[in-house]
Every structure is written in structure tokens, then in C-alpha cells.
């Protein structure tokens, strides 16, 4: 293509690898991954709270790296391994993060949860035994207005233990207070 020629602005056919499945989508070139996931692939578990990169609700994993789908052009991730919340459970069995988010009520309204769990999953892949401060930093790009983050930290810590094969019972302080 010569530099002056303009690529088409009409829909093009793309192929995505989402949660291990190949999906073909015809979409307009200016669409973000968020739009394609939610509106073309019906994967509405990925949420949006600002569409400007200011809240973290739309976090997904691209080749294992947590990124914001609202600022990622869909075209840029064709061929990459995309993971959304819908792909986190394995044949109906909850991922330990999902299990403990459910167990502790780390998911209150649940709107930010997919972003938090995917960011946490990426953290645990890199660092199987994160300290509370490391969790705090890794999740500092995700806002939650319900939980005060306390139950989220605890859920991530328990999921990490479970993934390490260690005992992982919630403490009484966590579920009943002191």
C-alpha cells in the first residue's frame, strides 16, 4: 500500500482467540476490544465504568498480560490469546480466585470483579506468593466502590494458598470480625 492510500473504514473480518476458542467477527476498524467482546461476541462479563482507562473495570488478559480493553484496538489483538472472565472457570469448576471471591463476598455488586480477578490471575502467574503489599500494588489499577478492597486481598491470598496446594480456610476474623 502506498503511504497515501487509506485502509478501509468499513467492517473487516477478523479472527480472535478468546478463552481458547477461535471466533470470527466482522467489525469496524475503529472498534475497541471492549466493544467487540461485549457487542459482537456477547461476552458481557467484561464491564466498563469510564471507557477512558480510569477505572480498571474492563481489564482482560492479552497473552497473559492484564490490559484495559477500552483502550485496546481490537485489530491489535487479533491472533493474541485473549482471556475474559467467561474463560476463567474450567468446565464449570470455578478458578480458586472466583471461588474465594464468592466465598468471602469479595464480589459485592460484582461489577469490578472480572477486572480484579483477571489482574489477580496475572499476578499469581508471576508471583505465586505475593505479600499483601504486592497484591495492593498489582491491583492498584482497579477501582472498587463496594468492598474497601479488604475481602479482595483476603480472597487473593487464599486463592494463592490454594494454588500452592496449602491449607486455605478463611479466618474467623475475616468472616465474623474479631
Amino acid at each position: 500500500m502506498s503511504p497515501r492510500e487509506a485502509p478501509d473504514r468499513r467492517k473487516t473480518l477478523g479472527e480472535f482467540r478468546v478463552n481458547g476458542e477461535r471466533r470470527e467477527v466482522a467489525y469496524e476498524p475503529h472498534r475497541t476490544l471492549l466493544e467487540v467482546l461485549r457487542e459482537d461476541l456477547d461476552l458481557t462479563g467484561t464491564k466498563h465504568g469510564c471507557e477512558l482507562g480510569e477505572c480498571g473495570a474492563c481489564t482482560v488478559l492479552v497473552d497473559g498480560v492484564p490490559v484495559l480493553s477500552c483502550l485496546t484496538l481490537a485489530q491489535e489483538v487479533e491472533g493474541c490469546a485473549i482471556e475474559t472472565i467467561e474463560g476463567m472457570a474450567d468446565k464449570g469448576e470455578l478458578h480458586p480466585l472466583q471461588d474465594f471471591f464468592a466465598e468471602l463476598g469479595a464480589s459485592q455488586c460484582g461489577y469490578c470483579s472480572s477486572g480484579f480477578m483477571l489482574a489477580s490471575k496475572a499476578l499469581l502467574a508471576q508471583n505465586p506468593s505475593p505479600s499483601r503489599d504486592e497484591i495492593r500494588v498489582a491491583l492498584s489499577g482497579n477501582l472498587c466502590r463496594c468492598t474497601g478492597y479488604v475481602k479482595i486481598y483476603e480472597a487473593v491470598e487464599l486463592a494463592a494458598k490454594k494454588l500452592r496446594g496449602e491449607p486455605c480456610e478463611p479466618s474467623r476474623e475475616c468472616t465474623h470480625g474479631r
Binding site: A6, P7, D8, R9, E28, P29, H30, R31, T32, L34, E35, H48, C50, E51, L52, L73, Q75
Partner: peptide
């Protein structure tokens, strides 16, 4: 939802 305006995308 805030969306991008249309544009031509070069890679």
C-alpha cells in the same frame, strides 16, 4: 459508552 470516532488505521 464513550466510543472512538471513525478513522483509517495504518499498521
Amino acid at each position: 459508552m464513550l466510543r472512538l470516532p471513525k478513522f483509517s488505521y495504518h499498521r
